[in-house]
Write a protein that binds this DNA or RNA. Structure first.
Lengths: 146, 146
DNA sequence: ATTTATGCAAATCGTTTGCAAACCT
DNA sequence: AGGTTTGCAAACGATTTGCATAAAT
């Protein structure tokens, strides 16, 4: 986590931003959660933070490339540490019953084949591909039985 | 489009719902658009519709399996005819500059390989997969040059 | 006749913002 | 001191909802 602090500091100062206590605590909440979480989750994990500051700091952290925002349909957005920081490319399992989001990894061979296909499809459309998002939607282990 | 009307009617009545003028016009807007559109787009394509009725009717049409809602991050959600109706499995190109969303198809072989990999990954996690969502994010043809 | 859909305006709720006080360097 | 961040409360905006009227069966 000191490693993360160091990287966070560098990323933020590259972006002309400071690593404040509030920002450190937001990052810590994301580390502790170990999965994409909502703002209420973050406030629960690090009590005492002001909601508006968490929103503002997540925006700062996202601009600095430290955090990714995952837009789910209706309710709260989810946030997690950016892949850039975790060095862990992954996709998301989204439970349509309880709304929980968790990470999932695909075999490297699948990722490579997928990347190739996406590059090809994008170039045919004259589209400059910068990233992709793959969500698996269904029922999580806790909700299948219900 | 009469074909669509017929299918819409069946789907809706299976769901205990009527095919009203307002619902027909929402569907027509989606047909005319030919790409995922927002509520303001729909109101522009079919002037005179009441915004709240469009919201309500899209919800009804979605429950009946005729329409898919695509949740983008911040602004308006996008809506399109359901794959079930169009028989056209596809993914989305999302322009991060202008917000436009359009459809894109991948080779069958890629889709099959992807499906297999997703089924496997989901089952490892005890996750009951019902569908997936794949978005290609970048800059559309009109925005690459800008 | 009875149920369902519509349109308007008001309410909801996640998120953003204005502003004064606290903080950092 | 000079600029930034914070916390509170108010504002915003997409979507939802209450209610009286119109439409459909």
């Amino acid at each position: 986590m000191d490693d993360l602090d160091e990287r966070a500091l560098r990323r933020l100062s590259d972006d002309g931003q400071r690593l404040t206590e509030g920002r450190r605590r937001v990052l810590q909440a994301l580390v502790d959660a170990g999965a994409p979480v909502t703002i209420p989750d973050i406030l629960g994990l690090q009590p005492g933070l002001a909601q508006s500051s968490v929103y503002r700091n997540l925006a700062v952290l996202e601009r600095a490339g430290l955090v990714s925002r995952i837009a789910m349909g209706d309710d709260h957005a989810h946030y997690e540490l950016a892949e850039d920081i975790t060095d862990h490319h992954h996709h998301h399992l989204v439970c349509e019953a309880c709304g929980k989001v968790s990470d999932v990894t695909l075999p490297d061979s699948t990722e490579r084949a997928l990347d190739r296909a996406l590059d090809e499809a994008a170039s045919v459309e004259g589209f400059a591909l910068s990233r992709h998002r793959l969500d698996l939607i269904g029922r999580c282990r806790d909700c299948v039985s219900v």
